[in-house]
């Protein structure tokens, strides 16, 4: 009752609201030092190393490109994202513009049957249930070779040059209580060489 009379006291009005807000919020302010340094952000084309710009211009002619910079503990990298022949391509460079790798989003059913079967066998053995939600080919090699492959080859041929596949799987691992998203790194023979759980960002501001 004290609380009710307090809240209904018109003399408190707006001031009480603001004070309440500030008093409850300020203790939660965290310092920058507690955070993990890992972020990516859009950059303009004039901040991209010339070498990277040249590779993208010569490989993906007449295509709209979005440039991003990524910061992590291992350093900085520059990434170009674009749509090419109906597929999403992501090209990663170091800060000097040296090509690191090219990732191409494909349909899981487009990879070879033998590799599909090996991946399914792994997932069946480790997950109670699962669904493959994203598949990417990872291409690595000398820039001239990658440029020739991307420019000339069709999607079916690209797989010949893949060194790895990256999969995103939604599923419940035997050790899990609930369904999670996982990232799997699969080699060119279909063997899973790494599995990591994807930590989802907070959703409370979207659902409550």
């Amino acid at each position: 009752m004290i609380l009710i009379s307090y809240l209904n006291d018109r003399s408190t009005r707006f001031v009480s609201t603001l004070l309440f807000f500030l008093l409850f919020c300020l203790p939660y302010v965290e310092t920058k030092g507690q955070e993990k340094l890992e972020r990516e952000y859009r950059i303009s084309v004039d901040k991209v190393p010339e070498k990277a710009k040249d590779f993208v211009k010569n490989t993906y002619s007449n295509t709209k490109v979005k440039w991003y910079k990524e910061e992590s503990f291992s350093g900085f990298s520059v990434e170009a994202k674009m749509k090419w022949k109906g597929q999403l391509h992501s090209v990663e460079f170091d800060t000097l513009g040296n090509l690191q790798d090219v990732e191409v989003a494909i349909d899981f059913n487009d990879i070879s049957k033998a590799n599909q079967e090996r991946v399914h066998a792994y997932l069946k053995a480790n997950f109670q249930h699962y669904k493959i939600s994203k598949t990417q080919l990872q291409l690595k090699g000398p820039p001239a070779q990658l440029q020739r492959i991307i420019t000339n080859e069709n999607q079916a041929q690209l797989e010949k040059f893949a060194i790895n596949y990256e999969l995103v799987v939604k599923g419940r691992h035997h050790e899990d209580n609930i369904v999670h998203f996982y990232e799997l790194l699969v080699d060119r023979k279909g063997a899973v060489i790494n599995r990591s759980k994807i930590v989802e960002r907070a959703v409370n501001h979207l659902i409550f």
Partner: peptide, 22 residues
Amino acid sequence: GFHFERSDFETILNRKLSSLDG
């Protein structure tokens, strides 16, 4: 008019079905 109208206190127990559903 200018008026402190109401206060809401809400609590929801959420059971996660996955990391993105509940």
